[in-house]
C-alpha cells in the first residue's frame, strides 16, 4: 500500500509535459493495434474507450509530441 501511495503521489507531482509525452507513446501503440484490427484508423471515441481515458485527455496527449513542429522551433532553430 505504501508503494501505491508513493506511486500516486509521484504521479501527481510530475510535470504535465512528461506525463503527456508518456501517454502519447501509449496512445500511438494503441492506435497502431486498433488500425491493424479494424483495417482503418480508429475514431477518437474508439481510442478513448480502448485506452480507458476521457476524450479530452486523449486530445491533449495526442498533441504532446507535436511540440517540435511549433513555428518557434522551425523559425529559430
Amino acid at each position: 500500500i505504501g508503494e501505491i501511495q508513493r506511486f500516486l503521489r509521484d504521479d501527481g507531482t510530475i510535470k504535465v509535459s512528461r506525463s503527456l509525452k508518456e501517454t502519447n507513446q501509449k496512445i500511438r501503440q494503441k492506435k497502431d493495434e486498433l488500425s491493424k484490427e479494424f483495417g482503418r484508423t480508429p475514431s477518437i471515441s474508439e481510442l478513448s474507450e480502448a485506452m480507458g481515458m476521457p476524450k479530452e485527455e486523449l486530445v491533449m496527449a495526442l498533441e504532446a509530441n507535436q511540440q517540435p513542429q511549433s513555428i518557434y522551433e522551425t523559425v529559430y532553430e
Binding site: D11, G12, T13, I14, K15, V16, S17, L20, M60
Partner: peptide, 10 residues
Amino acid sequence: AQLDPTVDEL
C-alpha cells in the same frame, strides 16, 4: 500547459 504545471495543479 505553457507554464508546465504538475499533473495535480492542472
